[in-house]
């Protein structure tokens, strides 16, 4: 007769699994300790947060302040768009050489991937500090920081997208004697284009978010207004900046999602 006994709802872990779970738990606790996690501070923070909110609301909506912040937000957008566009354009040729099995050999692929990994590993705010030293204070340093950030992000993902593109069209063109560059230009890049568009729009969203804080280190944009607002305890103005950033970032995300759907017909 067939055994129809119900199995245990939760299977007993093996000794190795048990040790792995225990190790993961210890790691998390260790990280929380290193991060200064404190229940006391969590419990005592709501009154302080409420105090900040009480002093920040209502936000500063004086026309003069709004006009000044509006111009700064416009500059922030200019930094983001210019940096993202240049970054995307520069990413494409680099990605073609970084993608395995397309044009360059494995040494070139791997070297470029290491360079892109380094660019990506350095935070945008650190790039902004470097460029403030290199080209001086102002939005140009911010734009260069965004270019680097976009290059690291798009260079890697464009290369991955091309490696993952359908190989069929490329094979059909190679079968007719087309050169490698022709195959990449006519089959691989068009095949990966929906992914490129999606990645580029994410890069733009990322650039907008990044550019709002680059002003903290003097690299242009609205971030400096946020810093000044907090430094001078002008919380209503700081709150206005925070709300403007939130509105613009959410707006860009919505616009990007709409454009993605329109251009490639799907969400990624």
């Amino acid at each position: 007769m067939t055994d129809t006994t119900l199995p245990n709802r939760i299977e007993r872990p093996s000794a190795v699994s048990f040790l792995a779970y225990a190790g993961a738990l210890v790691l998390i606790l260790w990280c929380l300790g290193g991060a200064g996690f404190s229940i006391d501070k969590v419990v005592s923070s709501p009154p302080r947060f409420a105090d900040f909110a009480a002093r920040a609301f209502p936000p500063n909506l004086e026309p003069g302040v709004l006009a000044r912040l509006g111009w700064k937000m416009l500059e922030t957008m200019q930094i983001a768009v210019a940096g993202a566009v240049i970054g995307v354009i520069l990413s494409l040729p680099i990605a073609v050489f970084a993608a395995r099995g397309l044009i360059a050999g494995p040494w070139v692929n791997q070297s470029l991937r290491v360079v892109l990994g380094f660019i990506r590993a350095v935070p945008d705010i650190a790039w902004a500090l470097v460029f403030v030293v290199a080209v001086g204070l102002g939005p140009f340093a911010g734009m260069l920081a965004i270019v680097m950030d976009t290059l690291g992000f798009c260079g890697r993902f464009f290369a991955d997208d091309m490696e993952a593109a359908d190989k069929g069209p490329a094979e059909s063109l190679a079968a007719t004697g087309a050169g490698r560059l022709d195959v990449v230009a006519c089959a691989t890049i068009p095949g990966a284009m929906p992914s490129f568009v999606s990645t580029s729009l994410y890069a733009l969203e990322k650039a907008v978010r990044s550019s709002t804080i680059l002003g903290l280190v003097g690299a242009g944009g609205i971030g400096i207004e946020l810093k000044v607002g907090f430094d001078l305890f002008d919380y209503p103005t700081a709150m206005t900046v925070i709300l403007m950033i939130a509105v613009v970032v959410i707006g860009i995300e919505q616009l990007s999602g709409w454009a993605r759907t329109k251009i490639i017909g799907e969400q990624r």
């Binding site: 359908d166 069929g168 069209p169 094979e171 059909s172 190679a174 079968a175 007719t176 004697g177 087309a178 050169g179 006519c186 089959a187 068009p190 095949g191 284009m193 929906p194």
Partner: peptide, 21 residues
């Protein structure tokens, strides 16, 4: 080999057209 392939053609099961072009 490329010069030789220029004298041949291939039709595949999946057609292998570039979709967006």
């Amino acid at each position: 080999l490329r010069a030789l392939r220029a004298r041949i053609g291939l039709v595949s099961q999946k057609h292998n057209l570039v979709p967006r072009l």
